[in-house]
Simulated scan of single mutants.
Amino acid sequence: MADTSAQRVPVAGLLLAAGGGRRLGGRPKALLECRGGDLLVERAVRVMREGGCATVHVVLGAGAAEVRARLGELPPGTALVDHPGWAEGMGSSLRAGLGALAPVPDATAALVMLVDQPRIGARAVARVLAAHRGGAGLVAAAYGGERGHPVLLGREHWEGVARTATGDQGARAYLRRHADAVRLVECSDVAAPDDIDTPGDLALLE
């Protein structure tokens, strides 16, 4: 069962949902629909809140106006961040998200998820948050020992991550540089890191 006691250690969810889906024929990933009709972005916000994130900031880029128009009612504490420079890559979206979170004084950390990984659910989020509550400032879900998402970045790391987040690398370079400080939390028994990049991956929405 997901741990929803985020009030003890407030962590802000940061959902990167700006991608344009170039290999999907230009279909923004945030607008893909899961079984039941929910948008992929709606599902991800729900997962992050159920997993224990106190708030969720969603970085929008490609198709942002349509995403806003089609979104249903989001949980209280959800903020939408428009990022016009989304085409520069995931790194720029991560910088935009961390910049939007910077004025939130009580957020001890940011839990970063990607919108196009529908097999990652609330239990994986809860495990990563539990490691942070145990004292870790850098945490990542692992799948068979390999680092994946969600990734948790303690506030003290935000500036360093923003400096190194370029292209489609996101926090990868920073985490590699600080590998000894990253606590890996195995999640392969409750989640899978498969992402949606090509038309053949759309089966994951089922």
Rank of each mutant, 00 (worst) to 15 (best):
S5Q: 12
E159H: 13
A141C: 13
H157E: 06
T78A: 12
K29W: 00
A171T: 07
R133W: 03
R27W: 11
G145P: 03
H83F: 10
Q7C: 02
R147F: 01
R183Q: 14
R43V: 12
R163E: 12
D168N: 15
A65W: 02
V182H: 14
G154H: 03
R183N: 05
L39S: 04
I196V: 12
Y174H: 15
A171Y: 10
L129V: 00
A2W: 08
P75W: 06
L101S: 09
E159L: 13
R70L: 09
D201Y: 02
L204R: 11
D197N: 10
A181Q: 13
P193S: 11
A54S: 15
M1C: 08
Q169D: 13
A131V: 03
V45H: 07
G200D: 15
Y174T: 10
G37S: 06
E73R: 15
L175N: 12
A87K: 08
R177E: 14
A87S: 13
R43D: 06
A110P: 03
A100N: 07
G167M: 09
S188V: 01
H57E: 11
G144A: 04
S92F: 06
H178A: 07
A142E: 15
D201C: 08
G137N: 09
V58W: 02
A192W: 08
R183F: 02
L101R: 10
T164P: 01
W86I: 00
C187M: 08
M1V: 08
D180R: 14
Q7I: 00
A64F: 01
R46A: 15
R68P: 00
K29P: 02
G99M: 10
A65Q: 14
S5M: 03
G20Y: 06
I196T: 04
A122Y: 00
G200Y: 07
G26K: 15
D201L: 09
E186I: 03
A30G: 10
L24K: 10
L202I: 14
A192P: 00
G134H: 01
P193L: 08
A126H: 01
R95K: 13
L184A: 12
C53L: 04
V115A: 14
V58R: 05
R8D: 14
G72K: 13
L40F: 03
A12L: 03
L80Y: 11
S5P: 03
D195A: 13
H178F: 02
A109L: 11
M1W: 01
D189Y: 03
A109C: 11
P199G: 06
M48N: 04
G170R: 10
C34M: 14
M48I: 00
A203W: 06
G63D: 05
W158F: 00
L184M: 13
E186D: 09
D3C: 04
V47M: 04
V81G: 10
H132M: 09
G154A: 01
A165D: 08
A6N: 05
G36T: 00
